[in-house]
Amino acid sequence: MIKVSVLYPYAEDMSFDMDYYLGSHMPMVAERLGDALKDSSVDQGVAGGGPGQPPPFAAVGHLVFESVEAFQTAFAPHTAEIMGDVPNYTAITPTMQISEIRL
């Protein structure tokens, strides 16, 4: 199994509309990816490691697939639509990481 994590770095002067992300963006992503998507979750950053530190990420979205190939096959036809929706909830440029789930 693999996890695709989409990380939105925190910046004090940037906003992130979590209501839109949870209520519109993630449901649209799940619908487009269909049965290839095995699980998903969203983390909202609340703090950094030390007292009073901001979180390193405003939000992180996680998508789980059987394999990198399953992700690429499901995502490719919808890339423009999914990425085109990002400005509806943030101006933050996301970073994507694909990881193998080990535990």
Rank of each mutant, 00 (worst) to 15 (best):
M1Q: 09
M1Y: 03
I2D: 03
I2Y: 03
K3D: 01
V4D: 03
S5E: 12
L7Q: 12
Y8W: 07
Y8C: 05
P9Y: 07
Y10V: 07
Y10Q: 07
E12T: 06
E12C: 01
E12R: 11
E12K: 12
D13Q: 14
M14A: 15
M14E: 15
S15L: 09
S15C: 02
D17M: 11
D17T: 07
D17E: 09
D17I: 08
M18S: 12
D19N: 11
D19Y: 00
Y20E: 12
Y21I: 11
Y21L: 14
Y21T: 12
Y21P: 02
L22E: 13
G23M: 04
G23H: 03
G23W: 00
S24A: 14
S24L: 05
H25D: 01
M26K: 04
P27R: 02
V29P: 05
V29W: 04
V29Y: 05
A30W: 00
A30E: 04
E31I: 00
R32P: 03
L33P: 08
G34F: 01
G34M: 05
G34R: 06
G34K: 05
D35C: 02
D35Q: 09
D35E: 14
L37A: 06
L37K: 02
K38P: 00
S41T: 07
V42H: 08
Q44N: 03
Q44A: 09
Q44Y: 08
Q44S: 09
G45W: 10
G45S: 13
G45R: 13
A47S: 15
A47D: 05
A47N: 10
G48W: 05
G48T: 10
G49Q: 11
G50E: 14
G52A: 13
P55D: 04
P55E: 06
P55H: 05
P56A: 10
A58M: 11
A58K: 15
A58C: 10
A59L: 07
A59T: 08
V60E: 09
V60P: 01
G61Y: 01
G61R: 02
H62A: 05
H62F: 09
E66Q: 04
E66H: 00
E66N: 11
S67Y: 08
V68Y: 11
E69H: 02
A70Q: 02
F71V: 04
Q72E: 11
Q72I: 00
Q72L: 04
T73S: 09
T73H: 07
A74R: 05
A74S: 10
A74W: 00
A74H: 02
F75W: 13
A76R: 12
P77E: 02
P77H: 01
T79G: 01
T79H: 02
T79V: 10
A80M: 06
A80C: 01
E81M: 07
M83D: 12
M83E: 14
G84P: 07
G84D: 08
G84N: 06
G84Q: 07
V86E: 03
N88P: 01
N88H: 14
N88L: 13
Y89P: 00
Y89L: 09
Y89M: 13
T90W: 12
T90V: 10
T90P: 08
T90C: 10
A91S: 15
A91I: 05
A91Q: 15
A91M: 14
I92T: 13
P94W: 08
P94H: 01
P94R: 03
P94M: 03
P94I: 06
T95L: 13
I98K: 08
I98V: 15
I98G: 04
S99A: 15
E100G: 09
E100P: 04
R102F: 09
L103A: 11
